[in-house]
Simulated assay, not measured.
Amino acid sequence: MTDNVESVELDAIVPESFYGKRLDQALAELFPDYSRSRIKDWILAGNVSVNDVNVSKPREKLVGGESVAINAQIEVHGSHQAQDIELDIVYEDDDILVINKPRDLVVHPGAGNADGTILNALLNHVPDIATVPRAGIVHRLDKDTTGLMVVAKTIPAQTHLVEQLQAREISREYEAVVYGTMVAGGMVDQPIGRHPTKRTSMAIRETGKLATTHYRVMEKFRAHTHLRLKLETGRTHQIRVHMSYLKHPLVGDPLYGGRPKLPKRAGPDMVHMLRTFNRQALHAAQLELAHPISGEWMGWQAPLPDDMVELLAVLKQDTEEHGVDWE
């Protein structure tokens, strides 16, 4: 595939109330469907005119009453192939779609996953999404995490969803199964950054980015806990890192949990389950947001996948047989 382009033509009269505003600030307010960084790039590239004169300085001051116009092109990148990969679509309209991601499916192509990803599937399902940055993907789930993701089908939808994410206005709740019996819920407020030596891992670091996770106990077992978690921020591996920090890593998480921990007197079903549960027991169960175009508040839920249902059933059976260990 070769790269194509799509034209963008916008024009407006600058309100008198914009006196003294910078050009990039004014254009971002006049054309809120496009991000400020994109508008700044267009100004620097000479794609913006004020009173029919090209202006390439984002800091140029306006007085009000000017005629401004943008004549630009958006590249449609052809480096990723559309692939006929089935998507579990929970909701779709002209602007967004919400999918229930299965395990073993990578969100975006990268090292070791050149194709066969959600992005490739989106290019097949919505060909025009090729004009949207990252094919409309505004947040990710780890390869082995299941559950709900929202995708923008247009640039205006993407712009407004990213703004909601940055303002922490999108509500995301997860279910997880962790090692150890937790007696109460709480909050982890610890910054997360790249691990100093393990480059594929994240870690609690003073120089990291702010990260806050709220959690509550849904069910306690003999040596495990079923949690409901809510993110305030969305850092890479946030729940996995925060639960490991609490000494309650997720079941099946080799990166932050180490080898499976078998409780005393574990029966064969328990041993088999813990040794063969080969992904982090984490599921994005609920997603709520304001529709990026209509503003309507919307929400979706995705039931636990079969493997986590089976895990919980084995843990419940083990607890009924042996009681509860409080050590």
Results as ranks from 00 to 15, higher is better:
M1A: 13
T2S: 14
D3R: 05
S7G: 07
L10N: 15
D11G: 10
P15M: 04
Y19H: 14
G20A: 10
L30Q: 07
F31Y: 09
D33L: 02
R36T: 09
R38L: 10
W42P: 13
N51Y: 11
D52A: 10
D52L: 08
V53P: 01
V53I: 11
N54G: 05
N54C: 14
R59Y: 02
E66G: 09
E66R: 10
I70P: 07
I70G: 06
V76C: 08
V76G: 02
A82Q: 03
L87I: 12
D88T: 09
V90C: 08
Y91P: 10
E92H: 06
E92S: 15
D95M: 05
L97R: 08
L105K: 07
H108M: 07
G110P: 04
A114W: 13
I118G: 11
I118F: 13
L123T: 09
V126K: 05
I129M: 01
A130N: 09
V132C: 05
A135K: 08
I137G: 00
L148H: 12
L148A: 06
T154S: 12
T159S: 13
Q164T: 04
L165M: 14
L165V: 02
A176S: 15
A176V: 01
V178S: 01
V178T: 00
V178W: 04
A184I: 05
D189R: 03
Q190M: 11
I192R: 00
R194A: 03
H195D: 09
H195I: 02
K198I: 09
E206I: 03
T207G: 00
L210Q: 06
L210C: 05
Y215V: 05
F221D: 00
R222V: 00
A223V: 04
L231K: 04
R235H: 06
R240I: 00
R240D: 00
Y245P: 07
P249N: 13
P249F: 00
R259S: 11
R259Y: 05
P263T: 11
A266G: 09
D269E: 15
F277S: 02
Q280G: 04
H283K: 10
A284R: 01
A290R: 13
H291A: 05
W297R: 14
M298N: 05
G299W: 10
W300A: 13
L304Q: 13
A313S: 12
Q317W: 02
Q317M: 05
D318T: 12
E321V: 11
